[in-house]
Design a protein around this nucleic acid. Sequence first.
DNA 1: TATTATAACTAACACTTGTTAGATTAACAG
DNA 2: CTGTTAATCTAACAAGTGTTAGTTATAATA
Lengths: 230, 230
Amino acid sequence: MPVVRLASDDPAWGNFEHGNCELEKMRLYTAKTIGRSAKAETSRNEILSAAANIMRRHGYAELTLRNVAAKVNMKAGSLYYHFSSKDELATEVMRIGVEAVERDVREALDQVSPIDSEQRLITAVHIHLNALLRSSEFVSSHIRCYPFVPDRVRFELREVRRRYDLLWLELIGEFINRPARGDEVIYIWHILVGALNQSLEWFNPNRHSIDDYARQIEIMLRQFRSQRPL
Amino acid sequence: MPVVRLASDDPAWGNFEHGNCELEKMRLYTAKTIGRSAKAETSRNEILSAAANIMRRHGYAELTLRNVAAKVNMKAGSLYYHFSSKDELATEVMRIGVEAVERDVREALDQVSPIDSEQRLITAVHIHLNALLRSSEFVSSHIRCYPFVPDRVRFELREVRRRYDLLWLELIGEFINRPARGDEVIYIWHILVGALNQSLEWFNPNRHSIDDYARQIEIMLRQFRSQRPL
DNA sequence: TATTATAACTAACACTTGTTAGATTAACAG
DNA sequence: CTGTTAATCTAACAAGTGTTAGTTATAATA
């Protein structure tokens, strides 16, 4: 019946399970494992994953400690053994998210020639989209919930976020041969980030292709370069 | 200190007042005024505006009946004289939003040659951006809160939203000379809508220019056409 | 096995939420 | 001025929130 099939038409919209990249999670989790027993570490990771899942699917408003606890067969109060507050839990989920996607992008860029600025930007687009839409609920929960999270949480995340933002500004600056902090680069950055991150609200893995979408974004990006002298 | 000034760095982020387009509001409100006294109508409109303001600035989770009531010097219970539920209030705010921006875009398109598909698309971009970032909190609250609103509210809005979506698909289809329902058009539509609507999260009227941003979007759009035969 | 630290539970707290019924005021008709 | 309708308030409700203190069960260590 719907002429255009919108994400919002799908009853299961937003309820897809992401591929379980357990290896990736492990790498992230263990990065900051200090003085925690194996069992505590496992529980903590389950809690983080459950929280990320709720945040990605239903938004920050639906992230309640009782919801999270139920997903890991615990009671709300038990979560305080692993996190000192709801804010800390949310911060940790989102911190894992940015750090994951930044690490993935940087690792992929290491395999690309430093002077091929077009291939570098395109690579970053692919990696970011895959993290967002396929591999990591930590990434998607961060992107989806950041604007609605309490001030304190946003404040805690400002440095990791800025690092990732600067990476993009530099990639774009190199690509269009302009200063990374000029208005031009910044506006293009906003266009690109908007196109990438809004996909969370419509992308349906059963109906859409990450690569197809990334290809259209590549086409768009080339225009910004072709408008300018090299 | 921040290298790149992000919206989230600004303490007043999201707290800008939109230009008071009272005339526009009147046109919208009165469109469905049936069997309501002048006083009731005024109160109802104040409630709608207050709700839209909260939704745009703080998101749907912060929209509480007590918050809204306080803004219009009422008590929470009094709102039930004008709306039968919180859902109905939210639905009405968002319905006004889509209908407003769709009407604005269509009226502007009436002034553009039907065969100048580039100018038509560019016009729509400008009108949409201005509604979103400057003139209407009903539009911005809709865009910002739609993904987080209860299912019932989204269901109520599906028709008005689809009408507006189809308008864009047709504009893009004409512009790149492709069927409005093909994958190509739909992906470009998602890119464009993402770039437009995400601006809600970073745009700061004291620091950015709507026209500058719209111009960058124009550059982007031309690439999609130039890639194809006419 | 006995002891101890770990990890979870119970049950409540103070508070906020949407919503409702009934009382109260304000505006207006006769 | 009187009576009636329209508009708002009061005060509570049941449900849900983050958080805490005290308790129990589990697991590791001696």
